[in-house]
């Protein structure tokens, strides 16, 4: 089987599992919703807040939601020791990781598509906001989180407290991506400043870490 069809098989399998159990998506949505609600209490949710730190609020909610998806990405393989079966198959590990990346990306994207209008309403997004730009940033930013996240999810899979280790590994390395996505979103929300170089940085981050993750996939997926 080719790399692409192996990747697609992994994606199909993950989505099928998710459609049957709905464990990740429902948890993600509810979790992100709670984050947004808590934010509105923690900071006075006025329109002025959104123009000042809206990008940050949005991305913290996305980040928390994404963490659930990324944790499940490899955590899904733990019952019945599925990962051992994957390891025993002659299929390329890079393709498996690429499939995991694609399925996490899709789940995160769907969650974000539901959250974004909710955010716009609850936080009174300014009417001048450039939604096309925000969606574009969300795609690039989610790509960054998903590619690093699946890699670190595989890495933390061996640990005693995997769910705790994942954010500890993912967040420090993703700092440049987080800066870029928050800044670009902020620019598109308020219409002040330029966003294109943040998008370029984000795209560069995505490409570098996707390549690096696929190249080093064997390191984190090899048998114990």
């Amino acid at each position: 089987m080719s790399f692409v069809s192996l990747t697609l098989e992994t994606v199909k399998r993950d989505l099928r599992l998710e459609l049957r159990t709905r464990e990740a998506m429902s948890a993600m949505l509810f979790y992100a919703l709670l984050v947004i609600v808590i934010f509105s209490f923690a900071f006075e949710a006025e329109a002025s807040l959104t123009t000042r730190v809206g990008g940050g609020l949005l991305w913290v909610a996305f980040l928390f939601a994404g963490m659930v998806a990324l944790d499940r990405a490899l955590g899904r393989e733990q019952p019945d020791n599925c990962l051992a079966g994957v390891r025993m198959s002659p299929a390329s590990r890079s393709a498996f990781l690429a499939g995991k990346f694609a399925s996490s990306f899709l789940m995160m994207a769907v969650t974000e598509a539901i959250l974004l209008p909710l955010f716009a309403v609850l936080f009174n997004a300014p009417p001048t906001a450039h939604w096309g730009g925000i969606v574009g940033t969300a795609v690039l930013g989610t790509w960054a989180l998903a590619t690093n996240g699946t890699y670190f999810s595989a890495m933390s899979n061996y640990a005693r407290q995997r769910s705790l280790l994942l954010p500890l590994l993912l967040l420090p390395v993703s700092v440049p991506a987080v800066i870029a996505m928050v800044q670009a979103t902020q620019v598109y929300l308020t219409g002040e400043g330029v966003a294109h170089y943040w998008l370029k940085l984000l795209f560069g981050f995505d490409v570098i870490y996707t390549v690096l993750g696929l190249l080093l996939a064997d390191l984190v997926l090899e048998a114990e």
Partner: peptide
């Protein structure tokens, strides 16, 4: 693997 990821960042 993490060492290389960190340095790339």
């Amino acid at each position: 693997a993490l060492g290389i990821f960190i340095f790339a960042a």
